[in-house]
C-alpha cells in the first residue's frame, strides 16, 4: 500500500510525518470522534430497518358497504378487454390498408384518366385493397360495437366521442366509395366515368382523413 501511495505521487516524494507534539493532540481527538461516530453509524443502520406498524385501530368513517363480487360483470370486463384489444390491432391494420388503397387508387386514376396509358395495371390491386379495407373496417367496427359495457358511460363530448363520430363518417365514406367505385366502372367508356371516378377519389381522401382524425384523437 505504501509503495502504491508513493508511486501515485508525481515526484515520488514520501508523505511527511506530523511533529510528535501534534500527534499527541490529534490521537485523543480522533479516538473521541470515533466513539461518537460509531453509535451514530449504528443508529443510521437501524433507520433503514422496517418501522413498527402504525396503530390504526380506530374508525373515523362509517363502515363502507361490503364489496359486491359480480362474476357476470367480471366476465363481461374480460370479454370487453379482449374484444377491444383486437379492435385496436384491426384498427391499425385498417388504417394501413386504407392508406395503401388511396395511394394505389390515385395511381389507378392517373393511369386511366391522366395520360398513364390506361394500362389497368393498378386496378386489380386497388380493387383488392378496397375490399380488404372494407372487411377489416367492418370487423373492427363490429368488435367495438358489440363489446359489452359492464361499466356505464355517460354521453359526453370527449375524445372517445370524436373517435366514434370520425369512424361513423369514415363508415359512410367507405360505403359511398364502394358504390361510386362500382358505378364508375359500370360507366366505362362514357364521358361521365371520369366525373364519378373523381368523386370517388375525393371521397376516398376524405374517408382516410376522417379515419386518421379518429385514430389520432385517441392520444389526446
Amino acid at each position: 500500500m505504501r509503495a502504491a501511495h508513493a508511486a501515485d505521487r508525481p515526484n515520488g516524494e514520501r508523505p511527511r510525518r506530523l511533529p510528535a507534539g501534534v500527534t499527541e493532540i490529534v490521537r485523543p481527538v480522533l479516538a473521541a470522534a470515533l466513539l461518537v461516530a460509531l453509535p451514530a453509524s449504528a443508529a443510521a443502520q437501524e433507520a433503514g430497518e422496517p418501522r413498527p406498524p402504525p396503530d390504526l385501530d380506530f374508525e373515523l368513517l362509517p363502515a363502507a358497504p361490503a364489496p359486491a363480487i359480480d362474476l357476470a360483470l367480471e366476465r363481461e370486463v374480460d370479454r370487453r378487454r379482449r374484444m377491444l384489444g383486437f379492435h385496436q390491432g384491426l384498427g391499425i391494420a385498417t388504417w394501413t390498408a386504407m392508406t395503401a388503397t388511396v395511394v394505389v387508387g390515385q395511381l389507378d386514376f392517373d393511369d386511366r384518366f391522366r395520360g398513364g396509358g390506361d394500362t389497368g395495371k393498378y386496378h386489380g390491386w386497388h380493387k383488392g385493397l378496397a375490399y380488404g379495407t372494407a372487411a377489416l373496417f367492418t370487423t373492427s367496427a363490429a368488435l367495438a360495437l358489440l363489446a359489452p359495457e359492464p361499466y356505464a358511460k355517460g354521453a359526453r363530448l370527449d375524445t372517445a366521442t370524436v373517435h366514434k363520430v370520425s369512424m361513423a363518417v369514415a363508415a359512410v365514406g367507405l360505403a359511398a366509395q364502394i358504390a361510386l367505385g362500382v358505378w364508375a366502372r359500370s360507366l366505362e367508356g362514357e364521358l361521365s366515368e371520369r366525373d364519378v371516378a373523381a368523386a370517388h377519389q375525393v371521397i376516398g381522401y376524405a374517408t382516410l382523413g376522417a379515419m386518421t382524425v379518429g385514430a389520432v384523437v385517441l392520444v389526446f
Binding site: 364489496p67 359480480d70 367480471e74 370486463v77 359492464p150 361499466y151 358511460k153 354521453a155 370527449d158
Partner: peptide, 24 residues
C-alpha cells in the same frame, strides 16, 4: 374521457374494490 374512465374502472375492478382509502 368516458372510455378511459371505464377502462380505469375495469383494471381497478371498481365493483369488487369500490373504494380507495387511507388511514394514517
Amino acid at each position: 374521457n368516458g372510455n378511459r374512465d371505464a377502462h380505469m374502472r375495469e383494471v381497478t375492478e371498481a365493483a369488487r374494490f369500490p373504494f380507495v382509502s387511507l388511514k394514517a
